Simulated scan of single mutants.
Amino acid sequence: MDPSPAHPPGDLLNWLELPRDVTASILLKLGAIEILTSAQKVCSLWRNICKDPSMWRAVDMRNLGDFDINIDYDLEKMCQHAVDRSGGELVDINIEHFGTDELLKYITESSSKLRRLRLVSCYSISDKGLSEAAGKLPLLEELDISYCSLSKESLEAVGRCCPLLKSLKFNNHGYRRPRIECDEDALAIAESMPELRHLQLFGNKLTNDGLLAVLGGCPKIESLDLRHCFNVTLTGDLGRRCADSIKHLRSPCDSTSDYEFDTEIHDSVSFDEDSASEFSDIDYFSDDDWYYELSGDSDSSDFDMYENGDFFDLSDHGEFIFD
């Protein structure tokens, strides 16, 4: 005889009866933005779970360049709120597309245990900002600073201050023309990051000399991505050396089908800070202690809350935040 089902047909599963750790596991599938703006408002139990510091050891605030989200929310203030909730236990954070020097300073001053940091397309983070932040990240192991306005200065600072760094992504847009050769980034990496295991330099302007320096200064590298590094020629002794010493090698002309960003080759065009500024000059709604503001035509009834077993109406509240 088949055992009786846990819930007879027609019965509804009560989400509030799930074990706390199961509920927490489900909520962790959401990003920080979804938790702060939606999930924690469902009921008092979920809100209580969402305030647990263990929920904030990893904070994913990526918005993929969605400017509509930027307009609706002050992402910087929301991120600060998430960092506060971690209680100093933050180990992994992604502030892709909206990071600034000020936000990076706030994060690093509160999160000495940080091991993974992703700053992709953060044009408002400067060499000075990253250099100062690196001094507070002695445990950092993984860093992604792709498509930022950064130079060898911050690479050197990261290398000096983060001796445990094992993975670096420092990607850019690839160019064949005009042909510009520059080994500054490669030399900074070679001279300061001996513990690297994984290095991605998509679209870098390094030459064979720069690559030789990296191979010599970072002898533990296991994976190296040189796609769209068109000044590198992996032939002869250099090609053999790379093939013999590196387990996972991506050559300049290898397929980019699995690369997560734009792979267009920007020939004859200079992608400078002026063109990048259009991605950073965004005005956010911010009102001191608030990171969310209802628009004038919003239906407040959509934000009714459940607390202590009862629903209550927030229709009289124009803006709100939960501590």
Score class of each variant (00 low, 15 high):
residue 2 D to A: 15
residue 3 P to M: 09
residue 7 H to V: 11
residue 8 P to C: 11
residue 8 P to H: 11
residue 9 P to F: 15
residue 11 D to N: 11
residue 12 L to M: 14
residue 13 L to Q: 13
residue 14 N to T: 05
residue 15 W to E: 03
residue 15 W to F: 15
residue 16 L to N: 15
residue 21 D to V: 13
residue 22 V to M: 13
residue 28 L to A: 14
residue 30 L to C: 11
residue 31 G to T: 11
residue 31 G to P: 00
residue 33 I to G: 00
residue 42 V to M: 07
residue 44 S to G: 03
residue 44 S to P: 00
residue 44 S to M: 08
residue 49 I to A: 08
residue 51 K to D: 09
residue 52 D to L: 06
residue 53 P to L: 12
residue 54 S to N: 11
residue 57 R to L: 04
residue 65 G to N: 12
residue 66 D to P: 00
residue 77 K to C: 04
residue 80 Q to L: 09
residue 81 H to S: 09
residue 81 H to A: 13
residue 81 H to R: 15
residue 86 S to D: 02
residue 86 S to K: 05
residue 87 G to N: 10
residue 87 G to L: 10
residue 88 G to T: 10
residue 95 I to A: 03
residue 95 I to T: 02
residue 95 I to R: 03
residue 100 T to F: 06
residue 103 L to V: 02
residue 104 L to I: 06
residue 107 I to L: 06
residue 109 E to K: 14
residue 110 S to F: 00
residue 110 S to C: 06
residue 113 K to F: 06
residue 115 R to Y: 00
residue 115 R to V: 07
residue 126 S to D: 01
residue 127 D to G: 02
residue 128 K to W: 08
residue 131 S to Y: 03
residue 135 G to K: 05
residue 135 G to D: 09
residue 135 G to N: 05
residue 136 K to Y: 02
residue 138 P to W: 10
residue 140 L to I: 03
residue 145 I to L: 03
residue 145 I to S: 08
residue 150 L to G: 07
residue 151 S to H: 07
residue 151 S to C: 01
residue 151 S to Y: 01
residue 155 L to M: 08
residue 156 E to V: 10
residue 159 G to W: 00
residue 161 C to K: 07
residue 165 L to W: 01
residue 166 K to H: 02
residue 167 S to A: 09
residue 170 F to G: 00
residue 172 N to T: 12
residue 172 N to A: 11
residue 172 N to S: 14
residue 173 H to L: 09
residue 176 R to M: 05
residue 177 R to W: 03
residue 178 P to A: 04
residue 179 R to Y: 03
residue 182 C to E: 10
residue 183 D to A: 04
residue 188 A to D: 05
residue 191 E to P: 00
residue 196 L to G: 01
residue 197 R to L: 11
residue 198 H to N: 07
residue 200 Q to S: 15
residue 205 K to C: 08
residue 208 N to E: 12
residue 208 N to M: 08
residue 209 D to F: 06
residue 210 G to E: 05
residue 214 V to C: 04
residue 215 L to M: 15
residue 217 G to F: 01
residue 217 G to L: 04
residue 225 D to W: 01
residue 226 L to G: 04
residue 226 L to Q: 06
residue 231 N to P: 01
residue 234 L to Q: 07
residue 237 D to V: 12
residue 237 D to Q: 14
residue 237 D to M: 12
residue 239 G to Q: 09
residue 240 R to A: 10
residue 242 C to A: 05
residue 245 S to F: 05
residue 245 S to A: 11
residue 246 I to W: 00
residue 248 H to W: 03
residue 250 R to N: 01
residue 251 S to Y: 02
residue 252 P to A: 08
residue 254 D to N: 10
residue 255 S to G: 04
residue 258 D to P: 00
residue 259 Y to N: 04
residue 260 E to W: 11
residue 261 F to Q: 10
residue 263 T to K: 04
residue 265 I to H: 06
residue 268 S to V: 02
residue 272 D to N: 15
residue 272 D to L: 03
residue 272 D to V: 08
residue 275 S to K: 14
residue 278 E to A: 12
residue 280 S to L: 12
residue 284 Y to W: 14
residue 284 Y to E: 13
residue 286 S to D: 14
residue 291 Y to A: 05
residue 292 Y to S: 08
residue 292 Y to D: 04
residue 293 E to V: 02
residue 295 S to D: 13
residue 296 G to W: 09
residue 303 F to Y: 15
residue 312 F to N: 02
residue 312 F to R: 07
residue 313 D to H: 07
residue 314 L to T: 13
residue 317 H to A: 11
residue 317 H to F: 14
residue 318 G to D: 13
residue 318 G to W: 07
residue 318 G to M: 07
residue 320 F to I: 10
residue 321 I to W: 13
